[in-house]
Design a protein around this nucleic acid. Structure first.
Lengths: 208, 208
DNA sequence: CCGGTAAGAGCGAACGTTCATTCTCTTTTA
DNA sequence: TAAAAGAGAATGAACGTTCGCTCTTACCGG
């Protein structure tokens, strides 16, 4: 008898995820209806539900897919020789080249993760992954003598994450925010933190 | 012959706003039902609708009220003599002392402002206000010679806003994020940007 | 190679629930 | 006593999900 076509299933899931992604980024999860997703994916509700058991599953699917995407971006520059040049490229990618839809979707995911444990879990793993990769980049650069060794890596990475979040939220909330114009100062601050030019290397001291 | 009691009206509106605020911060606007707000405010739907014409009006009311709150916080330290000490206090207030509910609510408002023009307008005015106050603080400090004059104030203020947003989002998304531990590095970076110790004073050059 | 067929793929109306809002009514008070 | 203040059931629209159905196609016995 006939058996399920795995390739087709994969393609359909992809079409649905992409359609939903665009809608979610623009209208938010709870403002997007299944009917809209169906229309955008060119599919009836009955059929769509053969690929995802619920709206939540679609949200989770998107979060997961995006996570893989960013992870691969990171992996591609993992152990480049020149830290600051590599970091600048990474920052430009992340701050400037990401589309408004990607930024918007991330905003929705973060927002949703505040009350959806499944999303929170995915986002948390994602964060942990990024933090680990950043730290490994810094450690490697320190080994090579590109940056100071006497630095509180945890504090610096934490601050980098904070700034990255901040830039994305500015972009998400203020559509004509010029992310490119903060890049020079961002790189400058990063250099300051990593070269230990000031008190940065003692900044991470835990209080108390 | 009986006439409306203005004091009572004001009180009732306040009770409703406070009840809604708590719920919104924890569950988000669209996950909070009018019934829940009614229950929390100790009031029937029929009566509540005498004070607010719609759910949206409650959201807008909260956004407006919070705006006034933060504005007054700023105003209270407007022209203190010691810039860095004042700024440290402000940062501590904003990063550490704000409750999880306040942070959560802000997250919801930012998220909502992405598609609700009325909220977007309020948030935008709020941002403009904060930016103006920060700039005026910096200008005053520069006059007094506390910070360098050769600085791109726009770029620095922009970065400060970015970091502030970032910290709040970390807090909103990661409940046990220790905002206090980033304060030293934050103040250090601020000092670096404002004292023009490095290339910071040229960082704001517009590219192209 | 060739129908026949059973399961896959797809459709869209209908269901049941949820929820913002309204309506009608009672209670309170200047 | 008339309007304000309040109550809570009712309404109607919106929306996620399901159900019963048709169409399509890979496989198998002949």
């Amino acid at each position: 008898m006939r058996h399920a076509n795995a390739q087709l299933q994969h393609d359909r899931r992809d079409v649905i995820l992409s359609a939903a992604q665009r809608l979610f980024a623009r209208m938010g999860f709870h403002q997007t209806t299944m009917q809209q997703i169906c229309a955008a994916a060119g599919m009836s509700p009955g059929n769509l539900y053969r690929y995802f058991p619920s709206k939540e599953a679609i949200i989770a699917g998107i979060a997961e897919r995006d996570r893989a995407d960013v992870a691969s971006q990171f992996a591609s520059v993992e152990n480049a020789p020149d830290f600051f040049a590599t970091f600048a490229v990474l920052a430009h990618h992340h701050f400037v080249e990401r589309t408004a839809d990607e930024v918007g979707l991330c905003a929705e995911i973060m927002s949703e993760s505040r009350r959806n444990p499944a999303i929170a879990r995915i986002m948390n793993e994602f964060d942990k992954d990024v933090i680990a990769r950043l730290k490994s980049m810094l450690r490697a650069a320190a080994e090579r003598g590109e940056i100071s060794r006497d630095i509180d890596f945890d504090a610096v990475v934490s601050m980098l994450m904070v700034i990255a979040d901040g830039v994305w939220w500015r972009r998400a909330v203020e559509p004509n925010f010029d992310a490119k114009s903060v890049l020079p100062l961002f790189m400058d601050i990063t250099r300051y933190m990593l070269l230990g030019g000031g008190a940065a290397n003692s900044a991470g001291e835990k209080s108390k």
